[in-house]
Amino acid sequence: MAPTARNVPALLQGLRAEGFSGTVRVSGLPGGAIHLRNGLVGAIETPGAPTATSALLTSGRIGDEDWLAACAAEPDADRLAGHLVAEGLIGAAELEVVCTAAVFDAAFAMALSPPGSWELSDREPALVAEPGVEPRQLTEETSRRMTLLSRLWGPPGELTRVRPAPVAGAGPRGSDGWLARRHRDVLDSVNGRRTPRDIAFALGRGLYAVMLDLIRMEALHLVQWETRTTADGRPSTAPRVPQAGATTAAPAPTPVPAAPDAAPLPKRRPGGVSPAQDVGQQKKGGW
């Protein structure tokens, strides 16, 4: 029986000591399911970030049909990794990287909103990283990411809610040939509707990685943060751009004037107090 824990990280530490294998379901927005194997985190499923499976399929690294055939041949997802490798669909080391990256990304995604309650249950098959990630390492890396984003941009919880749009007249598409391929893909995915999480799912990439790329591209004046308005036209209560002035729901965003310097100075956003929906950075109980 798991000891009563203050928060999810403490719970995971306790379960690590016990060598627990099973599932921790955490409620929240988003919640998620943490799949533990002998106390280590093998996989995390959350609507907040693509799973390893989602990343593999969306990116086309593994074809849909090959995937479905593999699942049919190996119904216990815990053994699926070995099967995929044995079938030559992906290398063992590469799959390890994908699964490990997904665990860290999902932990980060879940830490972006206040956690709810949790409950333990039995093992549910999942495509797991083997042997799995140490909970302590997960917590430390998540904290590091939060701190870095706060320094580079502002409250990470708010970054999840921006809907970036391309900057009009950012230059003819040909001239961004020097952009890294992944930056170009992100740019193609940015449309004023999608949040960073939506873009991550659309591209089959990690949420945190997409956020970093978006921040970089905003610094390069290729994307701009949309202000958060509803289609109603109610003005956003949390201005996202440094320029003061109420934002109304103009159908097309007004381009943000380019900052005079091109160097990637960290940009501090205004306090960004928004009622009700501000999930902020309450660390109590968080990752």
């Binding site: 927005l29 939506d198 509803t230 289609a231 109610r234």
Partner: peptide, 17 residues
């Protein structure tokens, strides 16, 4: 929100995905 489109947009805000 009051308008139909507002309600649809609000659903998009409230439910991930």
């Amino acid at each position: 929100p009051d308008s139909l489109t507002g309600i649809l947009a609000s659903l998009r805000e409230r439910v991930m995905g």
